[in-house]
Design a protein around this nucleic acid. Structure first.
Ligand code: DGT
Ligand code: MG
Ligand code: MG
Ligand code: ZN
Length: 572
DNA sequence: GCCGTTTTCGGCCCGACTGTTTTCAGTCG
């Protein structure tokens, strides 16, 4: 997919235009770049179908540049701009605090073209002598270079959310703090997180800010003000704090939750109504009287919109639907009745069936499903048919012992390279639920992989397709396949798609969930726990389902035990 | 460069913090 490459080009054009003080075009290029980054569909496909100008922020001119890049691998406009300002601009701008305007000055005055140039100049004290720069700026640039060189990646949601909750608890322990809430991409439950955003309401802002910037784990303070502070923790994570008054809580949380494009759209709606929206509230332009701000619900309502759940605030059509009151009620965090994928000591898990069942029961589940690995998974201690039969007996026994929770005997069965399954039908029919996965041969070409998966899904016992794309966030790309065809095959054969809640997988991801739903799919959400502790990951999977616009009805394991059998072939 | 239940021209989100400035531009959220 060339989406990201083209986004990068648009960002670079935007920066070069901004250097020349061109008005508005930089925002236009950046808006289009964000659209490209946020979409899951291949831009080449969109272009092929003549739908480029349907993309938000893409008009005739940018559609032309996208086509140009797809055809020639170049965008002339960028090459032209680069003639005026050569050098490694996109690298330079990754230094925090250095934007297009000052980068241009550095190039004009002392020919800075790269990070290495920049570092040398700063160390030699040549930057402080430039008009508009100074000693502090020079130091900040060096620190910025150091940070850039650390090359910090975006955090997994599974890392960021617990960390954010800890900080929130800490802030809540102060008696001056009325409310402390997580904002930003964590509140929207994005799969990866750039920084930790926290909102506090209080009547004593300076006290809170002082406390925040002097916490023991603070490495650096980027900024400290009355309503906004920003720090770097020793663990390398950035935390932004906004401090506002209690009666501004709603508008402040709305602002700080974002995303950026969602905010801009809301603010434009306000403008059209003769209003103004900011973190301080919704105001009448004339007279500046405040008409909302205490709660988010109030802000959306006064703008003429249905309330929008944070997970949907991605500028992916939610605002248009909210204007028409047409956003569906998405699945809730309490709607799950059981967990349908987990591993035990029988393969590569660390707990016994009984231990998993006791833990699940205490979480209020009505049922769980054991899905230990099939025989080809030698490194994961996959089970030979004989051992599988004993495993099933063990599950029946554990179920009698634990009582009060149904334990399904299932397995995570490999779809082998030729598309056959890792157990014969004679074995598969002994399981309550059959789930299948791709665990090897990831490098297969698209056609073959699609064929392989589809033949696996057509087996008459198969119920669930696990972690359907096989990706590991930041570590392994999804395997190549024709997603539409796979989903269509799943739908036709009544195979449910798993939303794997494991934070490094989150597979299916949000945009593909939404797409699969449009294609008629239904889903299970499961943790793939390899220990009792792993069962807690369910909230991440539910978050993805919400971001994929799923309702309770779309997810099979929201059903009670009684309703469940009709969704699984061997249980019918 | 994009876009449209007040517009196909004339708007384009709004505000905080910092350093180097005598009043604000640049950068970031
Ligand atoms: N109105 C407005 N709000 C913004 C803008 N930039 C950021 N925000 C708001 C919405 C964001 O969700 C929130 C936090 O900003 P961040 O830069 O931390 O972005 P976010 O948390 O969404 O993503 P991240 O994972 O941190 O990259 O602040 C902006 O340019 N305008
Ligand atoms: Mg953030
Ligand atoms: Mg932030
Ligand atoms: Zn697996």
């Amino acid at each position: 997919m060339k989406n990201a490459e083209i986004a990068k080009i648009f960002y670079e054009i935007a920066d070069l235009l901004e250097m020349q003080a061109v008005q508005f075009k930089p925002q236009a290029y950046r808006k289009a770049a964000r659209t490209l980054e946020g979409m899951s569909e291949d831009i080449e496909k969109v272009s092929g179908e003549g739908r480029l100008t349907e993309l938000a922020g893409v008009g005739e001119a940018l559609a032309g540049k996208i086509q140009e890049y797809l055809k020639t691998g170049k965008v002339k406009h960028l090459d032209e701009l680069k003639k005026k300002i050569p050098g490694n601009l996109d690298e330079l701008l990754k230094v925090q605090g250095l934007g297009p305007k000052r980068a241009l000055v550095l190039y004009d005055k002392i020919k800075i073209e790269s990070i290495d140039d920049l570092e040398k100049a700063a160390r030699q004290g040549r930057i402080r002598r430039i008009e508009g720069f100074g000693e502090k700026t020079e130091q900040d640039i060096l620190k910025g270079i150091e940070m850039y060189r650390l090359g910090t990646k975006r955090m997994l949601l599974g890392v960021a959310l617990p960390l954010a909750r800890e900080i929130v608890e800490k802030l809540k322990s102060l008696k001056e703090v009325k409310r402390a809430e997580i904002g930003g991409s964590i509140r929207r439950r994005a799969e990866t997180i750039g920084d930790i955003d926290i909102l506090v309401t209080t009547s004593n802002p300076s006290k809170i800010s002082k406390f925040f910037v002097s916490m023991p784990e603070v490495e650096r303070v980027f900024a400290e003000g009355d309503t906004k502070s920003s720090i770097l923790l020793r663990n390398g994570k950035q935390v932004d704090l906004r401090v506002l008054k209690e009666d501004e809580f709603g508008s402040a949380l709305q602002y700080f939750t974002g995303n950026k494009d969602h905010n801009i759209k809301l603010r434009n709606i306000a403008i059209k109504k003769g209003l103004k929206l900011s973190e301080y509230g919704l105001f009448r332009k004339a007279g500046s009287k405040r008409i909302a701000g205490r709660s988010e619900e109030e802000v959306y309502k006064k703008l003429g919109l249905q309330y929008i759940e944070p997970e949907l605030r991605e500028d992916q059509g939610e605002i248009d639907l909210a204007l028409k009151n047409k956003i569906p009620k998405i699945i809730g965090y309490g709607d799950i009745k059981g967990d349908l994928q987990m591993h035990t000591k029988n393969s590569d898990g660390v707990n016994t069936v009984k231990e998993m069942a006791v833990a699940a029961k205490s979480m209020g589940y009505e049922y769980i499903s054991m899905t230990d690995h099939s025989q080809s998974e030698k490194i994961a201690n996959g089970m030979e048919p004989e051992r599988l039969l004993k495993y099933i007996q063990g599950i029946r026994k554990a179920e009698k012992e634990v009582k009060g929770i149904r334990i399904f005997a299932s397995a995570e069965v490999d779809i082998k390279s030729d598309g056959s399954l890792d157990y014969s039908d004679d074995i598969l029919k002994k399981l309550d639920i059959v789930t299948v996965s791709i665990h090897s041969g990831f490098k297969m070409e698209k056609e073959k992989m699609t064929q392989r998966i589809c033949s696996g899904l057509q087996n008459k016992h198969v119920d669930i397709f696990n972690h359907p794309t096989g990706r590991y966030i930041n570590r392994r790309e999804p395997y190549e396949m024709d997603f539409e065809k796979v989903v269509q095959t799943a739908v036709k054969n009544k195979v449910h798609l798993e939303i794997n809640s494991s934070p490094e997988r989150l597979d299916l991801k949000d945009s593909l969930i939404r797409k699969a739903k449009e294609l008629g799919a239904d889903f299970t959400i499961s943790t793939d726990a390899h220990s009792v502790d792993g069962l807690k990951a369910m909230e991440y999977g539910i978050a993805m389902a919400r971001r994929g616009w799923l309702t309770k009805k779309d997810v099979i394991n929201t059903r009670s035990l009684k309703e469940l059998p009709k969704y699984f072939k061997n249980l019918k």
